[in-house]
Simulated assay, not measured.
Amino acid sequence: MRLNSDELERWQKARQGTERKELGAWVRAVVEESLNGHPGLPGDVPRVPQVNETAYAQLVQAAENLRNLMRHAQEHGSLPADADAVLAQLGNAALHVRGLPVAPERAAGPAQ
């Protein structure tokens, strides 16, 4: 999409008001809101909720587990069998912080 300098300036100012860092992400949000009839100012997308203690604790534990996985991989040249579960835990913690539903727990299997 091409914009003239006036359009680009207006769009950038509107984007800055929504805390979106990229113009493309802002444009996508505006179009989606327009198509889906969401209320609010164009481009004013939901923000990440403030981190609560439970979500923070989950992220801290997930980050520690990921550090341990990386240390094991560096020392032994491979990941332990629970690597997939640890990565899933990290992803779920990130989803929880955003207020999104987490993925169902899976049985731990061998790392690939």
Rank of each mutant, 00 (worst) to 15 (best):
E33M: 11
A29K: 01
K13F: 14
R106E: 15
Q112P: 15
A83I: 00
K13C: 06
Q16G: 03
V48N: 13
G24V: 03
R10A: 11
A94H: 07
A107I: 09
V102I: 13
D6E: 12
V48D: 05
D84V: 04
S5E: 15
R67V: 10
A108M: 08
S5I: 12
G99Q: 09
P39L: 11
L95R: 15
P42M: 10
P80M: 00
L87M: 04
L100H: 07
R15G: 10
M1P: 13
R47I: 12
P39A: 15
A29I: 03
V86G: 05
D82V: 02
R71G: 02
S78R: 07
K21L: 10
N92E: 02
Q112M: 09
A55M: 11
M70E: 11
G17F: 00
P49K: 04
L79C: 01
K21I: 06
P42N: 06
S78H: 13
Q50S: 07
M1I: 04
G77F: 13
A81C: 03
A14V: 01
Q89M: 01
N36H: 11
K21V: 10
Q112T: 14
E7S: 08
G77T: 08
H72G: 01
V51I: 09
G24M: 03
L41R: 11
E33H: 12
V30K: 00
Q112I: 11
V60P: 12
P42G: 07
N92K: 02
L66H: 03
A111C: 02
E64L: 05
E19M: 09
G24A: 14
H76G: 05
E33A: 14
G99Y: 10
E19H: 08
L90W: 07
L79H: 02
E9D: 10
L3D: 00
A83D: 01
L69E: 05
G109Q: 10
A57T: 10
A103C: 03
R106N: 14
S78C: 05
A111N: 01
R10N: 08
G17T: 14
W11Q: 10
G40A: 08
P104S: 11
H96G: 08
Q16V: 00
N52A: 12
D84T: 05
R15N: 09
V102M: 15
L90R: 02
A93I: 08
Q89T: 11
D6S: 12
L79E: 06
A62F: 01
R67T: 14
G91S: 07
A25I: 14
V27R: 12
A103W: 06
A93K: 04
E105P: 11
V45R: 14
Q58A: 06
N4A: 05
V102L: 12
R106I: 07
E19Y: 06
S78L: 08
G99V: 06
A55L: 05
L41Q: 14
E33Y: 00
M1Q: 09
